[in-house]
Design a protein around this nucleic acid. Structure first.
Length: 417
RNA sequence: GGAGGGAUGCCUGAGUGGUUAAAAGGGACGGGCUGUAAACCCGUUGGCUAUGCCUACGGUGGUUCGAAUCCACCUCCCUCCA
C-alpha cells in the first residue's frame, strides 16, 4: 500500500510501530472514516509494567491521539489459571485481592499515557476474568472450540517450535490461544472492539481471534503487530544492571529511568525517539543527524521526553539536572539516590563495602568487595585502593554527604544522622 | 502399565569417589580506550562477623576417613514399547 489515508496508520507506520497487519487497506479505510476501538492485552502478575511494554503502551497513546479508543485488557483470568510456559518459572497463583491491587497499580502507570473515561475515545481497562471465569466447559467447547482445528493449531509457530524441540506442551497451554481468541470476540461484543494489537510474537494468537470473530460473530476484525524492539547490538531492550526498568517510581526511581534512556546506543536514538516520544517527526529527523558526540544532545532529549511521560516534567527536569551535575561537572548531584545511616556507625568507622551494599550499589558485601578490588569503587570521586577501607565522618563533604560510585554511571549519596 | 535416559551455578553445559565453589561458552558487572555510545582488549562473576567459616550440583535417607560423583526411596521431565 502507498501512503495510508488515516492519520492513525500514517503516524504509526512513520514511527516504526508497524510490523504486520491482517488487512492494512481495510483497516485504514475504517480508521479514516470513524473511531476504531482496539485493545492490547497485558499480564497482571506484577504490580508494574516495564520498559519492554513501552512499545505497546505508546501504541495505545498514538491511537488515542489520532482519535480512537484504546482498551487495556488485563489478563486477570488467565493469571488465575497460571501460565505453565517456561519450565522453571511456573507462575504462583495470585489471589483476587493481589490481582486487583496489581491492576490498580498498573492503571496508575497507564494514566500517564492515555486518558481513561467514558467518552468515545476515552480509554478503558477491563479484566478478562469478568468473562473467562464464567465460562462453562461444555458450552465453551461447543461454541468456540469447534472453530479451532487442531491440525492448524499444531502448525502454529508457538506450538510447532515446542514440538520440534521435543519440549513439553501442556493441554492448558495449548488452550491459551483459544482463550485469547475468545477475548477478542468478547471485546467485540461488549465494546465493538475490532482491532487487536500486540508484539510480533502474538501474531498467531491475534489471527486466531480475528478468525474466530468472523466465524462466531460474522465480524470483520483486524490484527496488527509491532516489531520486537532490540537494541542495535541485538540485545532485548529494557534490562539494566539490576533487572527490569519498571515504570512505577517506587520500583525504579525517575533518576534511573532517565539514565536508562540517556544510555541508549547511538544507532538507536532516532528509532527510539520515534517510538517513545511525542516529538514531531521532522524534529526527530533533525536530531538524529547529529554526528559523533553531538548525538548525546539527542539522547538527553530522548531521556527528558520519555521520563516526562512516565514520571512528569518536574521529575524529568530534576533527573536531567542531577545528571548534568554528576556527569558534566563531576559533582554530587542532589537528586542521586540517597541513603541515610546512623551517625554513630560512621563515627565508629563503617566499612566501605557495607556502605556500598546499603546504598544499593552492590547486592552483597562480597560483590562490593570485588568491585573495590577491581578498581571500580570511588568515594567522593577518589578511586579506592584498599579493599577494607572504612568511611568516617572525615569523608563527609561540605554538603554533609559522602558520594559513593560503582563504576562510572552508578552513584549514590550517603548521609549520616 | 513396562524398559531405558535425564535433573549441575543467571542461562547453556562439562564433570562419574578426594587437588571441585565445580571446566567451557553466553550473559552480566568492573577496568582500559571513549562521548554516561558501539566495537575491541583485560579482569571479576555463591554467602559471611573473611588467611577462616557456611551453603551449594532435583528431594530425603544411606555407604565412606571423604560424595555433584556410589546405593535406596521419592518428585519432575524425556525417549521407546503397551
Amino acid at each position: 500500500m502507498s501512503e495510508p489515508r488515516s492519520e492513525f496508520l500514517r503516524d504509526i507506520v512513520a514511527r516504526g510501530f508497524m510490523h504486520q497487519c491482517t488487512d492494512l487497506d481495510a483497516l485504514d479505510e475504517k480508521a479514516a472514516n470513524g473511531t476504531v476501538v482496539a485493545y492490547i492485552g497485558y499480564d497482571c502478575t506484577g504490580p508494574s509494567l516495564h520498559v519492554g511494554h513501552m512499545v505497546s503502551i505508546m501504541m495505545l497513546r498514538r491511537m488515542q491521539q489520532t482519535g480512537h479508543k484504546p482498551i487495556v485488557l488485563m489478563g486477570g483470568g488467565t493469571t488465575k489459571v497460571g501460565d505453565p510456559s517456561g519450565k522453571d518459572e511456573q507462575r504462583q497463583l495470585l489471589t483476587d485481592e493481589q490481582i486487583a491491587a496489581n491492576m490498580a497499580s498498573i492503571r496508575k502507570s497507564f494514566e500517564n499515557y492515555v486518558t481513561f473515561g467514558d467518552g468515545p475515545t476515552d480509554a478503558v481497562m477491563v479484566n478478562n476474568d469478568d468473562w473467562l471465569s464464567e465460562l462453562q466447559y461444555i458450552p465453551f467447547l461447543r461454541d468456540v472450540g469447534r472453530h479451532f482445528s487442531v491440525n492448524r493449531m499444531l502448525s502454529m509457530d508457538s506450538v510447532k517450535l515446542r514440538l520440534d524441540r521435543e519440549q513439553p506442551l501442556s493441554f492448558l497451554e495449548f488452550n491459551y490461544m483459544i482463550l485469547q481468541g475468545y477475548d477478542f470476540v468478547e471485546l467485540y461484543r461488549r465494546y465493538g472492539c475490532c482491532l487487536q494489537m500486540g508484539g510480533s510474537d502474538q501474531w498467531g494468537n491475534i489471527v486466531n481471534g480475528v478468525e474466530l470473530g468472523r466465524r462466531v460473530a460474522n465480524a470483520q476484525l483486524f490484527g496488527l503487530t509491532t516489531p520486537l524492539i532490540t537494541t542495535a547490538s541485538g540485545a532485548k531492550m529494557g534490562k539494566t544492571a539490576d533487572g527490569a526498568v519498571w515504570l512505577n517510581a517506587d520500583m525504579r526511581s525517575p533518576w534511573e529511568y532517565w539514565q536508562f534512556w540517556r544510555n541508549t546506543e547511538d544507532a538507536d536514538v532516532g528509532r527510539f525517539l520515534r517510538l517513545f516520544t511525542d516529538l514531531p517527526l521532522d524534529e526527530i529527523a533533525r536530531l538524529e543527524k547529529a554526528e559523533g558526540a553531538e548525538i548525546n544532545e539527542a539522547k538527553k532529549i530522548l531521556a527528558n521526553e520519555a521520563t516526562t511521560l512516565c514520571h512528569g516534567a518536574q521529575a524529568a527536569a530534576e533527573a536531567a539536572e542531577t545528571a548534568r551535575r554528576t556527569f558534566e561537572e563531576g559533582d554530587a548531584g542532589e537528586g542521586l539516590p540517597t541513603v541515610t545511616i546512623d551517625a554513630a556507625r560512621l563515627n565508629a568507622g563503617l566499612p566501605l563495602y557495607e556502605a556500598m551494599k546499603e546504598a544499593g550499589l552492590a547486592q552483597s558485601n562480597g560483590e562490593a568487595r570485588r568491585l573495590i578490588k577491581g578498581g571500580g569503587a570511588r568515594v567522593n570521586d577518589q578511586p579506592v585502593q584498599e579493599e577494607l577501607r572504612s568511611l568516617t565522618s572525615d569523608d563527609l563533604g561540605s554538603d554533609g554527604a559522602i558520594k559513593l560510585s560503582a563504576g562510572k554511571k552508578r552513584h549514590a549519596l550517603l548521609r549520616a544522622e
